[in-house]
Nucleic acid binder design. Sequence first.
DNA 1: TTGGGGCTATACAAAACGGTATACATTGCT
DNA 2: AGCAATGTATACCGTTTTGTATAGCCCCAA
Lengths: 188, 188
Amino acid sequence: MNVLKQKILQVSTDLFQTRGINSTGVDTIVAVAGTTKMTLYKYFETKEELVLAVLQQSHQDFQSWMNDKLGSLNGSPNERIQKLFDFIEEWVTSPSFTGIAFIKASAEFPNEENRIHQLSSQQSREFRQFITKLAQEANIKDAEGLALQLSILFEGAVQAEQIKRGSGAIKSAKKAAKTLIDIATKQS
Amino acid sequence: MNVLKQKILQVSTDLFQTRGINSTGVDTIVAVAGTTKMTLYKYFETKEELVLAVLQQSHQDFQSWMNDKLGSLNGSPNERIQKLFDFIEEWVTSPSFTGIAFIKASAEFPNEENRIHQLSSQQSREFRQFITKLAQEANIKDAEGLALQLSILFEGAVQAEQIKRGSGAIKSAKKAAKTLIDIATKQS
DNA sequence: TTGGGGCTATACAAAACGGTATACATTGCT
DNA sequence: AGCAATGTATACCGTTTTGTATAGCCCCAA
């Protein structure tokens, strides 16, 4: 991908997260990125398209990072789902963490007909399915049920952390997750 | 409170929830409320002030409703905290439910210096303290720890429901809550 | 009847918004 | 050398934004 296009994407991601999507004009984006609107609109047809691209990149970054982390474990499937929230904590407590894009975007575009909302919804579903797979591999009986619970913990903890950084929500969610995983495991 | 002021508040609440705050102009609000901008700006100095008023009213409505529900129980403190998520489910699955205001607002105004964000943060904290009190009355040892977990479940389930209505997140959160409450109770 | 308060109607201001048009500079390839 | 692609600079367009100014209407009370 072109270097300027990537720069625009990265700057947009940062600004959208820290100021909000609707509160960030394209003029601001190009000013921070050190380019002009003409260039931005060469790579992105509309602002909506830019937002969608930002969402996709953010989600892929997170998913890839998590996949790598879990993949490098070389442990049992049971161990992998146990470690899921340790990695989530690592991601969320990183200083560069500014929130999860699809959570904020879905709040800013609540209408279910809206493309941005739809993509957010899809990404939320994808991450839940990802957890479901982990649970299935760990031979958990009600894999979908556990995955839904864990995804709620994830989104709740992220939401809490977005509303107040350093709230300790992640640690708490991690503990709750371990409890729920233990119980679901015993039932299998 | 003046009837027109209340109408403006109610219409604003509805529009902010269904279209987003930044995507809703004051022109739209007064058009739907059947009044004019002059009247709106008579009761609310700025749009920000209106948003803050909407947040306050929404939060108070929810808290009052929940207090009434729990108060009418006449049961043991243990029973009350057990029923908390039943009432949350009742609130969230109501057809008129369009989300929790402070969750959406905090996403739309991510900057912690922003007054709207600060109020959202405060309301989130207030609700957590409310749960803490329930847990303390139920003689739960780590009341704050449990309350934090339950508030994460609450915010996560609401977030999930905002992203996709009828996702079943509330039912799942309710089950998880019962599990966590049981365990916290046994440890007391 | 004569005010005055609450509200409407409408026009306006100044800025910010997304997006486009045009002209020019730079760079690399052939 | 010459061409094409990439990017810059800048001016502009139409719309929408929050917020105000002005003038008039309606109704109730003294």
